[in-house]
């Protein structure tokens, strides 16, 4: 449904994009200043560019080591979430069984839990499983907590597409696994992208569970490294901001990559009403 004269649309889109982009550019420009420059003249362009901020942040924040840990945690939990939540969503959306709504609400409920409340029982559970100070503990927690949003979104999405294709496939004698794999998964790919992206970002930026469940400083994730520049009384913005820029880049690439997938699917027009 493209408009014939999209000039106004473009203007509005650009205006909103500026509101988003300007503060972000400011953030990048700040990351090249020294501390007095950041606090004293926050909006001006840097007079002198401090590349050293980046070098110091990289080594002091131990970002190299942490990036590997974070990549493992994020990629694995996203993979687990996508696989498990799409299967569950298919079952909930397409089959009538007792407890269907209850399970669905149960997943939704996870979005409303204050995580601090469940920290102690989780810690004890991980201790019993002998997983403390092991990245697997964080992966398990992220995978489990990511399930809420993903199941919720995917169920809604599956419900909003008509059953015709599946029904005819089933009539042709295809099995449910075949239907799930060949019809449902391609159908919900755009939503899967959203799910993947969102869980990737929250795993990437997560701070609380790595701090609680891991204790060896070598096992920490990037968020811990970035926020280590926040002290009790003073924050080293000249190191925090560059480390933040470094840490944001991978997420941005993931997004650009994912959104390409997403758009390609939408335009392929394989599934339309």
């Amino acid at each position: 449904m493209q408009a014939k004269r999209p000039v106004i649309s473009y203007l509005l889109l650009i205006l909103c994009a500026l509101v988003i982009v300007l503060p972000l550019l400011d953030l990048v420009s700040l990351s090249f200043k020294d501390l007095p420059g950041i606090v004293g003249h926050p909006f001006s362009l840097p007079e002198k560019i401090y590349w050293s901020n980046y070098a110091t942040a990289w080594s002091d924040g131990r970002l190299g080591r942490f990036l590997i840990n974070t990549a493992i945690v994020s990629v694995v939990s996203v993979a687990v979430i996508i696989l498990f939540s799409s299967m569950a969503a298919y079952a909930i959306a397409r089959f009538q069984f007792i407890g269907n709504q209850l399970i669905y609400l149960g997943f939704l409920a996870g979005l409303a839990l204050p995580i601090q409340m469940i920290a102690v029982p989780l810690f004890i559970l991980m201790r019993q499983l002998n997983l403390l100070d092991n990245l697997i503990s964080v992966i398990l927690v992220y995978s489990a907590s990511g399930m809420s949003f993903s199941v919720f979104l995917l169920v809604n999405f599956i419900r909003s597409v008509p059953k015709d294709i599946e029904d005819s496939a089933l009539i042709d004698g295809a099995g449910y696994f075949h239907v799930f794999y060949r019809i449902i998964l391609p159908l919900i790919r755009p939503s899967l992208t959203t799910v993947a992206l969102l869980n990737f970002v929250s795993a990437w930026n997560g701070l609380f569970f790595p701090l609680v469940l891991l204790s060896n400083p070598d096992h920490m994730t990037v968020a811990v490294g970035v926020l280590s520049f926040i002290g009790q009384y003073a924050t080293q913005w000249n190191l925090l901001l560059p480390s933040l820029v470094i840490v944001m880049l991978p997420t941005l690439f993931v997004f650009i990559f994912a959104s390409r997938q997403f758009i390609r699917n939408m335009t392929a027009g394989a599934v339309k009403l």
Partner: peptide, 8 residues
């Protein structure tokens, strides 16, 4: 529009 979600 999505980028700010990445900033802590």
């Amino acid at each position: 529009y999505f980028v700010p979600m990445v900033v802590p």
